[in-house]
Amino acid sequence: MSESAKIQMDYKYIARLAGTLFAISAVTALLLGLVNYVTAPVIDQIQAEKKAAAMAAVLPADEYPAVADFVPTDSVGALYEAVSGGETVGYVAEVTSSGFGGAMSITVGVSADGAVTGVSVTDNSETQGVGTKVVGDQSVLDGFIGMSGVITVNEGDNAFDAVTGATVSSKAVTAGVNAALEAAGAYLQ
């Protein structure tokens, strides 16, 4: 057996390797736990505020109880009933859609007669200056207001005009709105 192979079989050395790596990992994990403990409530609160602001923006109502028997799908993550003065005024859906830069989260309001009341993109990774012409411009997103049924992009009678150069982002938002309309539609009839 050569000299270097003997060193590799040295249990003390192996224990030292494992021990050092374990110690470094343990200290790191401890510190991460500490940072997470401090930041988790703040992050949760920011997310909750964003969610509440998005729901109020797309369909103002007194409260938003979750629809009890709704089963989340790949695209529609959550569905809320919008209740104002004891009456259902519509539904708010939280959908995810796949854009140019990855997944985007969209909150869509649907009125009691099945029309879009508002669209808000809460999270996206679209290209700055291109996709953001759609997802970052509320006046473009407001173009969905009043639309219903299955919305197409550019072609057809019930079409949303895609922003030039940002067709993929436009299609992604449209797909999200369609998913929301479909999910809410099941409860409107």
């Binding site: 050395y13 030292r16 390797l17 050092t20 790596l21 470094i24 990992s25 790191t28 510190l31 991460l32 940072v35 997470n36 401090v38 930041t39 703040v42 992050i43 920011i46």
Partner: peptide
């Protein structure tokens, strides 16, 4: 302290730890 054979693994743990901390702090503040 870090043995030569596992130095890269140890570096990655240290770096990943700091990155995650910065990520969480950025998200919070």
């Amino acid at each position: 302290i870090i043995p030569d054979k596992i130095r890269i693994a140890a570096y990655i743990v240290v770096i990943a730890g700091f990155v995650t901390m910065v990520d969480l702090l950025l998200q919070a503040y």
